[in-house]
Amino acid sequence: MKTKKLINDGAAAVDEMLAGILAAHPRHLRVVEGSPRSIVANEGPRPGKVGLVIGGGSGHEPTFLGFVGKGLADAAAIGNVFASPPPDPIIECAKAVDGGAGVLFMYGNYAGDVMNFDMAAEMLAMDDIEARTVLTTDDVASAPIEQRERRRGVAGNVFIFKAAGAACDLMYSLDEVERVARWANDRTYTMGVALSPCSLPQTLKPNFQLGDDEMEIGMGIHGEPGVARGPLKPADQVTSELLDRILGEMKAERGDRVAVLVNSLGSTPLMELYIMMRKVKMMLDAAGIEIHLSLVGNYCTSLEMAGASITLMHLDDELQRLIDHPCDCVMFRSGEASR
């Protein structure tokens, strides 16, 4: 059975989405002339500032497009649905935001993205533009802790990009921005649960199968296998299972602070997310952990997949300042810019 989508042509869906975003948000975004998959912030790039370029496949909105703007990412290179952007739009993004202080690439740890961003960095070096890379690896379920470098980047991107973007906006050097990005990534943890599949615009068919009464813990945002499949449990039990795995790694002590994200994978409504947030707050209160910032909603989706993820960033004073730094993006604002 085919799914229903409000599209014209599956093959044109990404480009038509980009045209719509640019039509809706001309104050925030522009496209690089001749490179329609290179989206740049109108404010943010400036001389002497490290340029932050993020990117990856479409279908995860508001990641990545929604986080382009002043105080966060300077540009995003956009790929097809669940597919890496090729090197050319990445290169054009970097050139558009290069202020002479270097460029930092940040994206989730997926083989196609690594290959294409690395190729772009090599080609930029020929033009004397230094591009470094920090991969996001916050998905606790995707590899054991001793192999963290193999983990995928998922919803924790929001906090990791936010910290790095603030460091760029505060005119940190490339060395310091890279340090902040790696530290932010090391202190960010995500666990998710899938309840039903999504379908690609090109096929209109589910990209995996789950029974009517099943859930899968740890499934990736492209439908990658998780760590446990079984009967659907009540929200409090699911939330406890996800958060227990995070807290087991995070090693927080009483009095520590965190930023929390309860994220919809696409079709899970706010009602259910806030039920989960309620349980997160109860568990963190019991552990003596303070919530400094909480976000609830669609931040890193998988088209119309049903399910949710929980992310914690283990804050210190520096990360807290960077998370609080104002930003003004199409789909995310914080600090003074959000008022």
Rank of each mutant, 00 (worst) to 15 (best):
I129H: 04
G20T: 03
V81T: 07
D169E: 09
E304Y: 04
P45V: 01
E176Q: 13
T203I: 04
V180P: 00
C168V: 05
P26C: 06
T311Q: 02
I221L: 14
F64D: 00
P87I: 00
D175M: 07
A164Q: 02
P85A: 01
D15H: 05
D328F: 09
L135P: 04
P231G: 12
A111Y: 10
M171C: 09
S196R: 11
V180H: 02
K2W: 10
D324H: 12
L174A: 12
C327I: 04
A287W: 05
P234K: 06
D118I: 02
V14G: 02
D244E: 14
E149M: 08
D139A: 09
I275Y: 10
F159E: 05
G69I: 03
S35T: 07
L174W: 07
C329N: 07
A11D: 14
T137G: 07
L293V: 15
G218W: 05
R30D: 09
S302C: 08
A308W: 06
V280W: 10
G112Q: 06
V193Q: 02
D118N: 12
L135C: 03
P234D: 07
K205R: 11
D317T: 15
A75V: 04
R229Q: 11
V103P: 01
P201C: 06
T137S: 12
V280A: 11
V258N: 01
V140E: 04
L247F: 03
G192M: 08
G100A: 06
L65S: 06
M276E: 12
M119E: 05
P45M: 01
A24Q: 14
Y189L: 12
V32D: 01
R182A: 12
A163V: 11
F105V: 01
E272C: 02
D128N: 13
I275D: 13
R152K: 10
I323Y: 13
P231A: 14
M123W: 00
V31D: 08
Q320D: 15
V330C: 03
L315W: 05
N157Y: 10
D98M: 02
Y299R: 02
I54H: 03
T268R: 03
H325K: 09
Q147N: 12
I78P: 00
K233N: 14
V32Q: 00
I289E: 03
R46P: 00
A141D: 11
L303M: 14
L204Q: 11
T136M: 15
E146W: 08
T3A: 15
R254H: 14
A76I: 00
H28R: 12
D127R: 11
R179K: 15
S309H: 12
E214H: 12
D15W: 01
C300K: 10
Y172T: 08
A286K: 13
L52E: 08
P225Y: 13
G79F: 00
S173F: 11
E241K: 13
N298F: 09
N116G: 07
T3W: 15
R148A: 11
E216V: 03
E249G: 09
K4L: 15
D98E: 10
